[in-house]
């Protein structure tokens, strides 16, 4: 039956349901990522982000919330230039975070 509307996938980041396994593994290997203050310096300076919709800050934050869908593809847009690492006020090795996320999610 056509009701004239459909039901969307729920949009909430559901921390009751999300599996944080990959996120926890990532943070064990790179504890400093927990110190991110979401300032966006990485995204502002990002070579890839200037041309595509790639947003390093957003994608790594989503991964830390257990939202893995599409993250591997997004991180693949990174050119590994390392500029973000120079900008980060928390001293996070952001480029290594890209590599780790890709590695962990490739296994999935």
């Amino acid at each position: 039956m056509d009701w004239g509307y459909s039901i969307n996938q729920p949009r909430a980041v559901n921390l009751d349901k999300n599996d944080l396994g990959v996120a926890e593994k990532l943070l064990r290997r790179m504890p400093l990522l927990q110190a991110c203050i979401g300032c966006g310096s990485c995204t502002a300076t990002c070579t890839a982000g200037g041309f595509t919709s790639f947003n390093f800050r957003k994608v790594q934050t989503l991964v830390r919330r257990g939202e893995y869908q599409g993250a591997y593809e997004e991180m693949s847009k990174c050119m590994l230039c390392g500029k973000c690492r120079l900008a980060c006020p928390r001293g996070i090795n952001t480029r290594a975070v890209v590599m780790m996320i890709k590695k962990e999610l490739a296994k999935q």
């Binding site: 966006g40 990485c42 982000g49």
Partner: peptide, 29 residues
Amino acid sequence: IRGRISEASQTIDRRVQIKAEDTLVGRPL
């Protein structure tokens, strides 16, 4: 605007161009 300026550069007319992420919008600015 919630975002830290990552760098500034001087324009030909000696003004200042700045780059940041508008983190509440999620886009570079």
